[in-house]
């Protein structure tokens, strides 16, 4: 009886999974084996593997996602650590979360306003006599804006991991003769590694398939797999090839998840 009840309440969840998770994945996988004329083929995969353009895009995607993730991690860890020490940490955390409530497109346009030819930074540079510079449509601006947008998703898991460390553990480490730095390396860092892994997943995976920021901020100078998918679906109408790239991205994400999944435990300190 209870089995049936379980099934009844689980039904909406299963339906959701089937319709919005499994079905799209199956469709993408299926599409990736169709050519422009709807014939079943593995040509898309062969094209992908043989074309230097696609391989370069793949490399670009991974490389930029890596840079974005690295930059957010370098900023997020100290920020999370400092917020965790504050008495009013809920307030500071709210400041971190707040920007995620604003539409992505709006935030991106805000950066066009800041970085553009007539933007506030260039106005200021002209004012102090340094003249205008091309800030928008550069690799640096692309990475900066992408990192800004992904930052909260890196801070939150790391913050949670830091807050979960009992203060007595820090005291115990100092008590046993560890310096502040040794305490960080031997106690705090190992205990927050899971938070860092979660943060890397939350940032690296979306960064792989960014396309809007590459266009608006990167000025299409940076072409990633995300951009390629968009082009294939909307411009060249080659859904098969677009799906193939999609599958490649899904596989790349799975690899990242496997690499960052740290379920091993205990043993040596190093």
């Amino acid at each position: 009886m209870s089995e049936k009840k379980h099934l009844f309440f689980a039904l909406p969840y299963y339906l959701w999974l089937a319709l919005f998770v499994i079905a799209p994945l199956v469709l993408i996988f299926y599409q990736s084996f169709l050519n422009l004329h709807g014939q079943f083929t593995v040509q898309n995969y062969l094209d992908f593997a043989q074309s230097s353009v696609y391989l370069k895009m793949t490399f670009n995607s991974v490389w930029y996602a890596f840079l974005i993730t690295g930059l957010t991690l370098i900023i997020a860890y100290p920020v999370a650590y400092i917020i965790a020490q504050f008495k009013s940490r809920d307030f500071w955390l709210a400041l971190v979360i707040l920007p995620t409530w604003i539409n992505l497109l709006l935030k991106t346009y805000a950066f066009i306003g800041i970085l553009g030819e007539k933007g506030s930074i260039n106005t200021f540079l002209r004012f102090i006599g340094l003249g205008s510079h091309q800030l928008l449509f550069t690799d640096a601006s692309f990475i900066l804006v992408a990192a800004y947008i992904e930052l909260p998703f890196m801070i939150l898991p790391i913050y949670n991991a830091i807050v979960a460390i009992k203060p007595s553990l820090i005291n115990a480490s100092l008590d046993l003769g560890a310096s502040r730095f040794q305490t960080f390396r031997r106690v705090i860092w190992p205990l927050t590694k899971n938070g860092v892994a979660a943060g890397i997943q939350a940032v690296f995976i979306p960064s792989l398939s960014l396309f809007m920021i590459t266009r608006l901020i990167g000025g299409n100078r940076v072409i990633t797999l995300g951009t390629a998918i968009e082009e294939h679906f909307l411009t060249t109408q080659n859904w098969g090839m677009g799906s193939t790239i999609g599958v490649v991205l899904v596989v790349a994400m799975l690899i990242v998840m496997l690499l960052t999944d740290d379920s091993k435990k205990g043993g040596r300190a190093k």
């Binding site: 553990l169 005291n171 115990a172 480490s173 008590d175 046993l176 003769g177 560890a178 205990l191």
Partner: peptide, 29 residues
């Protein structure tokens, strides 16, 4: 500073390092 004192503490909540096993906890110092 605490790390330069010749005293050691047994904490109320034990404060054992959860990422280390028994041997490594004891060997920490």
């Amino acid at each position: 500073p605490a790390n330069q004192r010749q005293v050691n503490t047994v904490f109320q909540d034990y404060a054992l390092f959860p990422n280390l096993n028994v041997f490594e906890n004891i060997a920490f110092g």
